[in-house]
Amino acid sequence: MLGFSRFSHNVGKQYDEFLLDSIDRAKYQWDQATETQEAIYEVDGEIVAQTRLAREKYLFLYREARERKVSNNRIQSSVIDY
């Protein structure tokens, strides 16, 4: 039983790191989608939908990190614009 609790603790840390990496990627994709939308003269519905999807992915992952109380210097609460 002792070995199992150590294993589950390591899995949690690994998931937290994976979550933080996913948040970084989602933020980058959201920024890219926003820049693309701003750079295009005639924005169609697909581009707007892609930007919204990227934003929602980021917000979902961010909320998950907050619920899990994952914190370090990689995530700042000021990056979300509501």
Rank of each mutant, 00 (worst) to 15 (best):
M1Y: 15
M1C: 12
M1L: 12
M1T: 15
L2I: 15
L2S: 12
G3F: 15
F4D: 15
S5N: 07
S5T: 09
F7M: 10
H9C: 08
H9S: 12
H9M: 09
N10K: 14
N10Q: 14
V11K: 06
V11N: 03
G12D: 10
G12L: 09
G12Q: 10
Q14Y: 12
Q14F: 15
Q14G: 10
Q14S: 14
Y15D: 10
Y15T: 10
D16S: 07
F18C: 09
F18V: 07
F18R: 11
L19N: 04
L19F: 02
L20C: 06
L20I: 04
D21F: 05
S22D: 01
S22P: 05
S22A: 05
R25V: 08
R25M: 04
A26H: 01
A26I: 05
A26P: 02
K27N: 06
K27E: 05
K27L: 07
Y28E: 11
W30G: 00
D31I: 12
T34L: 12
T34D: 12
E35S: 08
E35N: 11
E35Y: 12
E35W: 09
E35L: 08
E35G: 10
Q37S: 11
Q37A: 14
Q37T: 15
E38T: 14
E38H: 10
A39N: 04
A39T: 13
I40G: 00
I40H: 03
Y41P: 03
Y41D: 05
Y41A: 05
Y41M: 04
E42L: 11
E42R: 10
V43W: 03
V43L: 01
V43D: 03
D44P: 00
G45E: 06
G45C: 13
G45S: 15
E46F: 13
E46N: 13
V48N: 10
A49Q: 08
Q50M: 04
Q50V: 13
A54I: 02
R55H: 10
R55Y: 10
E56L: 10
E56T: 11
K57R: 03
K57S: 01
Y58Q: 02
L59Q: 06
L59Y: 03
L61E: 01
L61Y: 03
Y62R: 13
Y62S: 07
Y62G: 01
R63F: 13
E64V: 14
E64R: 14
E64F: 13
A65C: 05
A65R: 03
A65P: 00
R66K: 15
R68D: 00
R68Q: 03
K69E: 04
K69G: 04
V70E: 00
V70H: 05
S71Y: 10
S71G: 09
N72V: 02
N72R: 04
N72C: 00
N73Y: 09
R74L: 01
I75E: 03
Q76T: 13
Q76N: 15
S77Q: 12
S77P: 11
S77C: 11
S78D: 13
V79K: 05
V79Q: 04
V79R: 01
V79G: 03
I80M: 00
Y82E: 12
Y82W: 13
